[in-house]
Design a protein around this nucleic acid. Structure first.
Lengths: 199, 199, 199, 199
DNA sequence: TAATAAACGAGACGGTACGTCCTGTCTTCCG
DNA sequence: CGGAAGACAGGACGTACCGTCTCGTTTATTA
């Protein structure tokens, strides 16, 4: 962002994140070691410890790097049809979660987050918040368009929409297919439907 | 259950699970080591490796041991009022999750499950399934009583009820209080309300 | 000595000492690392740290192992002619110091001893004392035979005999040849000659 | 000497040597690091690497700096009585070696010298030779005065005088007291006494 | 008096080794 | 024979330094 005041080597930063991404796919998160990342990245261990506080932080950064392509503003599609848009997004997310690299990184990240409150905070602020904001924005638009109950708790709505999805993926309690995505959207929208809107 | 055919020492088994429970609270799951559990339990390391395949399996067993008090059949309250009963249960669960021992163990377990498919399977079968069955039974009763839409997908209904709850706890995105429990129940029931049941 | 009460692996012990010996010759004492010794010996680092307190202690042990061939009692030759015997011994020592393995080990040992009082004590007790005793015994015999002044300070005599020798070797201030050995013996014996014994 | 053609900072040079001296006393030679010297001296690491080839060279320089007070020519006392003069000098040396700073520096230096031939050469030329020259000069004077055998090997004589002294200090095999100094001088002079000079 | 070039402090870098902790296996000995 | 005890080979941890390499910043002539 600002012209970095430190003299951090960008080459090393990228190499570390790439190595972490590759290795987590190759050997799985628990067997991922800082030592191996350093070796693989052609980097001194100290360089990793200098810039990241923990293995989890490296993985979190690698996750961010994966989704860094989207230049800045995350926006959800808005065709005017909330239900259709949400289904589109959730189905797309299901596909994304099929990517072994992202999936392996995210599993590791969730594992660490479950157990490391500091990392959890970083995750919420740096990964979760931006996309949650975008999702909320779409819901608010839908609400203004009369497609959601005017007093609906949109944060709760989001939880209903996404938590079952993430949980099914995390615990492997079922497939992440289009049918599940659609059912989730439909159920959630029913819960927050505008008054009198019953089929 | 049946008088074990093996010559496994029950004394050691209990000591190991107790040590695991204590240590996971004391130092956190990631710093929990088999070595320390053995030392703390006054047990040879080999004894642990003989009976449990991994650290995660020990913790899973410790979780089971914690909820073993409930003698066998898990049943949810059934006063006839589904909404009230679900709120009761969810509020009670929120309280349970406040127990540091259970919480620390469960966090460790979730961390491992996220990343170890085999343990995930054990978890689903040995921990999740029994309680899911009980919950489904209560929902079915409510459905029969006309408090849920006759064609409601009860498994999905359960996901909407519990996944947001677990996710909030796991990622610490908010407090697990009665208000949240109630809102969750209300929204879910709205999504699966019987036809024409609009307030 | 006694049937060892511990369960120490003799195989590992030997491998470590041999690796230390080989490596100290190969790369020199300062670049000798515990890590490399372990690797070279096919031994875990912990096994080294379990049985030796420091790199210096390993090298001291390796030195002992080198001179362990002599089965127990160290005795100096006694032909009746003290001067001849001492020259024999000192010349032989000069040859021994020519052995690159012994030389490299001893240099490392002296370097560490100069700077580590505890190791110095071990050296004095385990390496120096036995041979010093043997040398003193030979001097005493010579004294009884009238070849040394009856009130000669034999410890000092030994210092005059050996310290210049060791110093020349350590600081490389000159060659360790027969001429030097002989001159050393002659000068020392002159200093402690019996009364009236002037050529 | 000449107004140095380089632009070397004398301030930094002094700071480095002082830091080395202080640190070697504080933590001992083996734990002395270039890094710590630089930090302690308020100097960049590169400045040390620019002017000294190794840790040992810094310490050698620090030793020289300690004995730099003597303005140029080193001369031993010459009262006409060789024995008395040598005892004076050796006793004084014993006192010098009691200085913790000099002692710690010298121990480190000897440790490094034992193991680094290049540094050994520097030591011989820059530290040892000047004082050896002075000592030889005094012995020659004594020889001319008939207090030493006319054909005495004065270099060997010096070895007998000093090597046992240094060895006792280095290996801590005994105290460096006046009695030891005197005994050393007496024995050595006996070994190189002029003909017929028996008390 | 300004330009210029070296030495300087600071400290990041790729590495090596440290000494500790733990893993999972193996062996010994006790009950 | 199960279990407590603990040594073993191996490997990762997080730290400390190594010696090299930029960075800007003095500093001290030389133009």
């Amino acid at each position: 962002m600002s012209p970095d005041t430190t003299r951090r080597s960008d080459r090393s930063r990228r190499a570390v994140l790439a190595a972490a991404r590759d290795l987590v796919v190759e050997v799985g998160y628990p067997r991922l070691s800082i030592e191996a990342v350093a070796r693989h990245a052609g980097v001194g261990k100290q360089t990793i410890y200098r810039w990241w506080p923990s293995k989890g932080a490296v993985v979190l950064d690698a996750v961010r790097a994966l989704s860094e392509d989207e230049t800045g503003g995350i926006t959800l599609p808005d065709t005017g049809d909330l239900e259709a848009d949400l289904k589109t997004v959730l189905r797309a997310t299901a596909v994304e979660f099929g990517d072994p690299a992202l999936s392996a990184l995210l599993r590791g990240l969730y594992a660490e987050i479950a157990v490391d409150p500091e990392l959890a905070m970083l995750y919420r602020e740096q990964v979760d918040r931006p996309v949650t904001e975008a999702k909320l924005a779409r819901l608010r638009a839908g609400q203004r368009a009369g497609q959601l109950h005017p007093e609906a708790d949109l944060a709760l709505c989001l939880d209903l929409l996404y938590a079952p999805f993430v949980q099914r993926w995390l615990l492997r309690t079922g497939p992440l297919d289009a049918a599940f995505a659609d059912a989730l959207v439909e159920a959630t929208l029913r819960a927050f439907a505008p008054v009198g809107d019953v089929e």
